[in-house]
Computed example of a mutant assay.
Amino acid sequence: MQNNAIVYCEGLFGESDGKVANGLVRFSEKYKILGIIDSTKAGLDAGEYLDGVKNYIPIYKDIQDALVNIKEAPKYFIIGAALAESYIPDNFMKAIKEAMTAGMSIVNGLPIYLTDNDSLNNLALESEVAIYDIRKPKPVTELKLFSGAIEKVTCPVVAVLGLDCAIGKRTTCMELVNSLKAQGLKAAFVATGQTGILQGAKYGVPIDVINSQYVVGEIEASVVEAFETENPDIILIEGQSSVSHEAYLSSYGIIKGGRPDAFILQYAPKRKQRVDFEFIDVPTTKSEIELIEFLSKKPVIALTINHENMLPTEVASEIKKAELKHKLPVEDVLLNSPKKITNTIIKTFNLNKKLSAV
């Protein structure tokens, strides 16, 4: 059966806190996205609003608006926001209950677990639907410590890190994976957050909810599994947060557990303060590159741009300026072709031999 789904993202679609919905609109192997619910953008095309290109995924006012207009019955109701709050807002809770009553199972990517709520569990039973808390970690007895198995991985590993949270690391990573595949290479993707898992990533875990003692081991295990299962020419790891971020440790786990051979740094030139931490300035690309290279002893080989609040002419200017400053290739892989960056990866690891053998 097709996994028909609608995505709830009230007031946040296209924003940094709507990144789950944004990602699912751009790419989804696991679910067929039938619509987005955000009353503030109702009537618009999701793809056109997000990237300027229609994808014929409508944005609806509310659940009833969606159910009246969608021809295929949605089976799943996905919570498409990454909320900073440590509780479920009332409007989200109301929508969750309405969706279950309408016969939809709930897919929850928040770090607040709906299956811990007795009233929601009872409603799910009454409505004959399920609740999936995809960020609920495995029991500690099933989590993996670092084992050194990463040393078995003989293909190159590249991590796409960022200058901040919600800055497009996963989107850029997947664009690069798809571009490498299109050029004839076997590229594997390792997700480290809930959106990548929701999109259908075969390998990876949402690392921000795992006991810190096991983060490195779980990332290592995911990379090793991708290597042993796919026998890839290259593995790309989705980054989380940033190495320099004052509030998060995720990037350290990726560096330690994934042992990347090189890094790509994603940044947003117009972003001056950190998402959800407006009192903290975003650091410079130069300082982040130096920190990544100091900790990993591996190079940053390219930079990629998130063009939020930028005109195309500003992006072109930024690319020229950043390439001159850092002596590295720079590209916006959503506005332009990813090939400048993928060609850099191919050249760095001499993967032309793999291509010539195809």
Rank of each mutant, 00 (worst) to 15 (best):
N4K: 13
I6N: 10
Y8A: 12
C9Y: 12
G11I: 04
F13R: 07
G18F: 04
R26P: 05
R26E: 06
E29L: 03
E29I: 01
Y31D: 10
K32P: 08
S39D: 09
L44V: 00
A46G: 08
E48P: 09
K54G: 12
I57H: 06
P58N: 07
Y60K: 11
Q64R: 13
V68N: 14
V68Q: 14
I70R: 11
P74S: 15
A81Y: 06
A82T: 06
A84D: 05
E85V: 13
Y87V: 03
I88G: 03
D90L: 11
K97W: 02
A99V: 08
A99R: 00
T101Y: 03
A102N: 06
N108K: 09
N108E: 10
P111H: 15
T115S: 07
L120H: 01
L125S: 15
I134Q: 11
R135Q: 15
P139Y: 05
T141I: 13
E142Q: 14
F146R: 08
A149I: 08
I150V: 15
V153P: 03
P156I: 06
L161P: 00
L163A: 15
A166F: 11
L176Q: 00
L176F: 02
Q183P: 00
A187S: 09
T192R: 13
T192K: 11
T195E: 02
G196E: 09
L198Y: 12
G200K: 04
A201F: 05
A201Q: 10
V205P: 12
I210H: 11
Y214A: 07
V215K: 04
G217E: 12
G217P: 14
E218Y: 02
E218D: 06
E218M: 12
E220F: 09
A226D: 13
F227N: 03
T229M: 14
E230D: 15
E238Q: 12
S244T: 13
S251N: 07
S251F: 03
Y252M: 07
G253R: 03
P260I: 08
F263C: 04
F263E: 04
Q266Y: 03
P269C: 01
R271C: 04
Q273V: 14
Q273G: 09
V275D: 09
V275C: 10
V275W: 08
D281T: 08
P283V: 04
P283H: 07
T284M: 10
K286F: 02
K286R: 05
E290C: 07
I292K: 05
L295W: 08
L295T: 12
P299K: 13
I301K: 02
I301M: 05
T304M: 05
I305L: 01
I305S: 01
H307N: 15
S317H: 10
K320Q: 07
E323V: 00
E323F: 04
L324R: 01
K325N: 04
E331K: 00
D332T: 03
L335G: 01
N336V: 06
S337W: 01
I341W: 02
T342N: 02
I346S: 04
I346Q: 00
S356K: 13
S356V: 12
